[in-house]
Amino acid sequence: MDFKTKMATPQVSQFWVEMSGILKMALVSFAIAAFALWLAVPDLGGFGYILLFSECVGVGIIMIRTLLLCLPWLHTTKPLLALILTMVVALPGGYLVGHIFASALVFEPMHISGSGPTKMVPYLATALTGILLLYFLWSREQFSKEASARLVAQHLASESQLRLLRAQIEPHMLFNTLANLRLLVEEDPIQAQLMIDQLIIYLRSALTASRTELIKLCDEFSQLRAYLEIMSLRMGPRLSFELTLPDSLQYATVPSMLLQPLIENAIKHGAEPKIGHSSIEVIARQTETGIEISVSDTGLGLAPDFDYREPSSSSYGLLHVRERLLKTYGPNASLSITRNAPQGVCSTVKIPQ
């Protein structure tokens, strides 16, 4: 099976699933119409006879409607006008096709309706049932299109919001690093060169990550290492770090730059304001339900009144991570913030398998 066949198969399968549902709906609708006709006009024949003709008419209307939907110009027409055109063609056409087919099944000459004063009743019953059915199918399709449009709009809005959050996170690190680098160029050229090398590694990986939604965990950790190297050069002995990534998780994928805001928070709120040494530890581990990544620090920690469950809108880093997790994995993924013992903060990201 080639690639085109693989791509077409789900679409064909979905088409027949939808057609099956529509045909069932048509059969039920015209069965009800047949029962009403049998009660209202007994002269038309027995219930089985009326049911056969009614169901054939219903299938005929659906067949013609399906053929009309294959016309490209109908989809560019205003929705209400397209519905009217479909009714004008499908109702009489389906009535004619259905009667031809039903007459062939019962081996009798084709007749469009009964005789006598009630001859208009089958026309009216078919028209009313067909109009209601076609209008219902049209309304359902319009609702589906509107729902799809809303999903696309929500996706674009979510993407824009995530880009804004990311833009609010990165300048803090870049401005501080460049300011520190300006001083090191004169005071310690060797340290300045090391910082420039790590900054190049970080910016290159950040640029690559910004162009993709998902990234291998080993690449995410490489970017974090470059960032932490820059921070340790800037802060000197006040900061140490350790990254732990098992071999089994090297090629697992996560949203790009997912952990970066947690590291920035650990430094901004933990290590930088603290007098003395702080350490940051990033550990990824496999669990029964998926992947768990913890970012813990021994820094100053957050304010005592900080709400770990619902960070304020100014907590761009935590908001960014939560939005990324929700967008990529839905409610099954989570970010939890707890106080680290004896000091600091521990942020834990849980990603479902």
Rank of each mutant, 00 (worst) to 15 (best):
96 L>T: 07
138 W>V: 05
312 S>M: 10
347 S>R: 06
189 P>W: 04
159 E>K: 12
126 T>C: 13
342 P>A: 10
142 Q>L: 11
336 S>P: 00
209 A>D: 15
330 G>W: 06
10 P>E: 08
237 P>T: 12
1 M>Q: 09
154 Q>G: 06
40 A>C: 08
6 K>P: 00
13 S>L: 12
163 R>L: 12
147 A>D: 04
16 W>K: 00
123 Y>W: 05
35 F>Y: 12
184 L>Y: 13
52 L>P: 04
139 S>H: 10
241 F>Q: 03
290 G>E: 05
161 Q>N: 12
236 G>I: 01
343 Q>T: 09
234 R>Y: 08
60 G>H: 02
278 S>E: 05
260 Q>M: 13
80 L>H: 06
87 M>G: 14
245 L>I: 08
242 E>F: 00
218 C>T: 14
169 I>Q: 04
35 F>N: 10
209 A>W: 07
32 I>F: 10
257 M>L: 15
246 P>F: 03
182 R>W: 07
325 L>K: 00
215 I>G: 09
125 A>G: 03
100 I>T: 08
160 S>Q: 14
267 I>D: 04
266 A>R: 03
156 L>P: 01
154 Q>P: 00
80 L>N: 03
301 G>H: 05
94 G>V: 04
342 P>I: 05
5 T>Y: 07
324 R>T: 09
88 V>A: 07
224 L>E: 06
353 Q>N: 14
215 I>V: 10
218 C>G: 07
331 P>D: 09
177 T>L: 05
353 Q>W: 07
135 Y>C: 10
199 L>V: 04
67 L>H: 06
62 I>G: 03
211 R>E: 14
205 S>A: 14
72 P>I: 05
280 I>C: 03
203 L>V: 13
285 R>D: 10
336 S>Y: 00
315 S>Y: 06
20 S>A: 12
206 A>C: 05
62 I>Y: 01
118 T>Q: 15
184 L>V: 12
321 V>Y: 02
156 L>W: 08
254 V>C: 00
120 M>I: 14
328 T>I: 15
298 T>K: 01
199 L>A: 06
248 S>M: 04
274 K>D: 08
16 W>V: 09
277 H>I: 00
40 A>Y: 06
69 L>I: 00
345 V>W: 01
45 G>F: 02
347 S>D: 07
302 L>K: 14
12 V>E: 10
276 G>Y: 03
29 S>L: 01
244 T>K: 14
70 C>M: 14
283 I>P: 05
336 S>I: 10
89 V>W: 01
194 L>Q: 15
88 V>Q: 06
57 V>P: 04
246 P>Q: 00
236 G>Q: 02
217 L>I: 03
214 L>E: 10
318 L>Y: 09
103 S>V: 05
